[in-house]
Design a protein around this nucleic acid. Structure first.
Length: 463
RNA sequence: GGCGGCGUGGCCGAGUGGUUUAGGCAGGGGCCUGCAAAGCCCCGUACGGCGGUUCGAUUCCGCCCGCCGCCUCCA
């Protein structure tokens, strides 16, 4: 059984499900006001790895991830560019899904948009006001944090120490600096929805609590996001659920941040690197491998050097797939199918043990690379059958982590195919000078060239 | 100031109270190869500093230094 580090308890906990066989998880998606950065990519990968592993072990996963399509930043951008909020949101959401696809991330089973749930949000805020948990001010409706049982659970801080660190804005009518907006009354020119408190729009924390409970129901299994969301975002979602009298998430999972040159990636720091840019230069699988080689809760460095490192590691896996001509469909097998197909049980068990231990992908990846060496060694020693079996387990396990291995030769255009033929002729005639000349030209055109018993084989060198 | 976390060999990055090593990348040597590529074998003896506990600590405890995240929007 999978154990995960739970942010609420600070300990590794078994993932006990509300309903055996099905995992219900809500992952905070993003606000679509700009192109995504590499940190968003890691977030998508972190939960994709979780989901794939759960599905690999035979569970069904209801994976809900929202898109926040109304927000200050979207409004600002729309105003600055003279277009509608919806145009801005639609444009960047599209960019996002392109990046998600390029990373090989399975799309969520459901993608609620905040603007589609405003009515339900208004209902929640009304209820919270009625219950006396929330109050109205000149600029909105706020939740009173003081009465909330266990507020600070996810921050691991007491109400007092949180209050001590809170920054207070001038002119606020909040009863406590920690109170947060459930509803924001509209300023001129902003998009609005009607409410008992006049036209306005929902607060961010209200969006997620409404959508998660609406789509997954009380006591859903897992709520996740980046560690920077634990407080105040998730804390405040939980606070609302509590005041609302609903059972909220059973488990909390948060992944670590991406840093660039040891600083958190962020626009304000100016070290912003877009995911789109990364995916233009490097294939998504390499970024996935980079992410997998660190634990999901550790910070990772994304730099040209760490990416290049991952590219080389990936090349080693692909070389194995070429050597054994591994079928791409192997990476789609789940655990039961793999056992049925006769994949080495020891390798599968070791993988499951590592992954069950808080998704220990670094160890799992290390294990896969050990299998790579094992397969190559066995093949070198002429133990063909053993080698093939080990190579197959590499493909299956890498696939379980979302890494599809690229084996079989690519489609060659006529020009390239002719060169390959000419090189094989030259080699057959032992005309090494000519063979080498052709090889150099192929390499200059971005091909990796390998001589095999079957003649010249090409593969794309990615970088 | 409060809370959480980190500091491992050239780089990335796991892990562990002591016996034989994570893994990858880069580098050196060798084998294979017409030469390469791919692959295999061998090589680095690392755990921020100072104390403490211990027969023994990189691993536990304390302090210090440095770094990161959160306490404000943020994956």
């Amino acid at each position: 059984m999978l154990h995960l580090h739970d942010t609420a308890t600070g300990r590794r906990e078994p993932l006990e499900l509300r309903e055996p066989g099905t995992v219900t998880m809500y992952v905070c998606g993003l606000t679509v006001y700009d192109v995504p950065h590499v940190g968003h990519g890691r977030a998508a990968l972190a939960f994709d790895v979780l989901r794939r592993y759960l599905e690999f072990t035979g569970l069904r996963v209801d994976h809900v991830s929202n898109v926040t399509d109304i927000d200050d930043k979207i409004i600002d951008r729309a105003a600055a560019e003279g277009r509608s909020e919806q145009e801005v949101a639609t444009e960047y959401e599209e960019v996002w899904w392109q990046a998600v696809d390029a990373l090989g991330v399975r799309r969520p089973t459901e993608v609620p948009h905040a603007t589609g749930y405003v009515g339900k949000m208004v209902a929640l805020v009304s209820e919270l006001v009625e219950r006396g948990a929330a109050y109205e001010t000149d600029d909105g409706v706020y939740l009173s944090v003081d009465g909330v049982d266990g507020y600070g659970l996810l921050a691991h801080q007491s109400l007092d120490s949180l209050r001590a660190g809170a920054r207070v804005e001038v002119g606020e009518q909040k009863r406590s600096p920690l109170d947060f907006a459930l509803w924001k009354k509209a300023k001129p020119g902003e998009p609005t929805w009607p409410s008992p408190w006049g036209p306005g729009r929902p607060g961010w924390h209200t969006e997620c609590v409404v959508m998660s409970l609406e789509l997954l129901g009380d006591g859903f299994d897992l709520h996740g996001g980046g560690i920077d969301l634990a407080f105040p975002h998730h804390e405040n979602e939980r606070a609302q659920a509590l005041c609302w009298g609903r059972d909220f998430a059973r488990h909390w999972m948060h992944h670590g941040m991406v840093t660039v040159e040891a600083e958190k990636m962020s626009k304000s720091l100016g070290n912003f690197t877009t995911l789109t840019e990364l995916l233009e230069r490097t294939e998504g699988r390499a970024y996935r491998l980079l992410v997998l080689r660190a634990h999901y809760r550790s910070p990772i460095e994304v730099t040209p050097a760490t990416l290049a490192d991952a590219v080389e590691g990936l090349a080693r896996l692909d070389a194995l797939a070429r050597r054994f001509d591994l079928d791409p469909s192997l990476s789609e097998l789940d655990l039961a199918q793999a056992r049925e197909a006769g994949v080495d049980g020891g390798a599968l068990d070791a993988f499951v043990e590592r992954m069950d231990d808080d998704l220990d992908t670094p160890e799992a990846v290390a294990g896969i690379f050990e299998l790579v060496r094992g397969a190559n060694s066995a093949a070198d020693a002429g133990r063909t059958e053993e080698a093939r079996g080990t190579a197959v387990s590499v493909a299956v396990l890498a696939g379980a982590l979302g890494l599809r291995l690229v084996g079989g030769g690519p489609e060659l255009d006529e020009h390239t195919a002719v060169m390959v033929r000419q090189r094989d002729e030259a080699r057959a005639e032992r005309d090494w000078a000519r063979a080498d000349r052709i090889r150099e030209q192929l390499e200059a055109e971005g091909w990796g060239v390998e001589d095999t018993p079957g003649g010249t084989k090409l593969h794309r060198r990615s970088g």
